[in-house]
């Protein structure tokens, strides 16, 4: 029983700050923790704020391009790595893992310096380039793990039956790795929508994404509009992640079924 209480308490603690943000987005009082009544004013205030809407649209635009480019590159990388000679493959995966654990601030600093020496104009493009750079390794790793489930004899059979390599890939490999690509897409989108550290380094003065806007508002103090906006962002993320869990739950039950079939 004590174990369950412990699990419950930690879970409650994990959700506490999010719950607080959501609850206070409906609080009529402008400041402090005192509940003075229910209101939707902060939502309409946030919706009327043109700069916030611009930031939201910019975030969505960046997330959209990041998601597509990361998925294409990450998937091609994983499929390509699987075809490489063992040592090249090992080096390639190691490189992806290393990119994954470089602290955000350092990747941001390195990219900023690099863009500056190339004289690239900062803006949506530099942010898409940077976001894609930290998303590709995630897609790569997820697809690589999934690729291990592809039985090479199926591909051989398809080739024996006269399928061209691309046809064999599209009709055998692709359906199997599709859930991993979908998960990678959702994670890329979630990470792009969430990023503050790298964006604020490589954005330039004109381009402000939603998390950057929220961050600069937070530094000036807490206002209920941020709660309203955050609540909207949280729900978008919940939907993305909920969808992701749905995709992965399917995968998990599939794996469990396979395990049972083997044991039987």
């Amino acid at each position: 029983m004590g174990k369950r209480i412990y699990i419950f308490m930690i879970m409650a603690l994990l959700y506490l700050p999010v719950a607080i943000v959501i609850i206070y987005s409906f609080n009529a009082s402008k400041s402090g923790a005192v509940w003075t009544g229910f209101t939707l004013d902060w939502y309409s205030a946030a919706a009327r704020d043109g700069r916030l809407i611009d930031s939201l649209l910019m975030s969505l635009e960046i997330a959209f391009f990041t998601c597509i480019i990361s998925c294409v590159l990450g998937t091609m990388g994983a499929v390509g790595a699987a075809r490489m000679r063992p040592r090249a493959k090992q080096a390639a995966s190691l490189f992806m893992y290393i990119s994954l654990i470089i602290p955000e601030i350092i990747l941001g600093v390195a990219l900023l310096m690099f863009f500056s020496v190339l004289n690239v104009r900062y803006g949506v493009m530099t942010m898409v380039l940077s976001h894609t750079t930290f998303c590709v390794p995630y897609v790569f790793i997820m697809v690589s793990i999934r690729l291990r489930a592809v039985d090479p004899s199926f591909i051989e059979a398809a080739r024996d039956l006269g399928a061209k390599p691309f046809k064999a890939f599209a009709s055998i490999t692709l359906p199997i790795i599709m859930p991993a690509i979908a998960s990678g897409a959702l994670i890329s989108m979630a990470m792009s929508l969430d990023d503050v550290v790298i964006s604020s380094l490589v954005s330039g003065p004109q381009s402000v994404t939603l998390p950057m806007r929220i961050y600069s508002m937070l530094r000036l103090g807490v206002t209920p509009e941020i709660n309203a906006l955050s609540t909207v962002l949280v729900f978008v993320m919940f939907m993305l992640v909920g969808l992701l869990q749905f995709v992965q739950a399917g995968r998990r039950s599939e794996r469990a079924a396979k395990k049972e079939a083997r044991n039987a």
Partner: peptide, 29 residues
């Protein structure tokens, strides 16, 4: 438990930090 853990994990860290500010600030929760 694992699903809810993952959802918390992928929820914006900035917003969760903000939640803590509301809790910990002067006159906070």
């Amino acid at each position: 438990v694992l699903v809810f853990l993952m959802i918390a994990f992928w929820t914006s860290s900035l917003i969760r930090t903000y939640g803590w500010i509301i809790i910990l600030q002067t006159n906070g929760v």
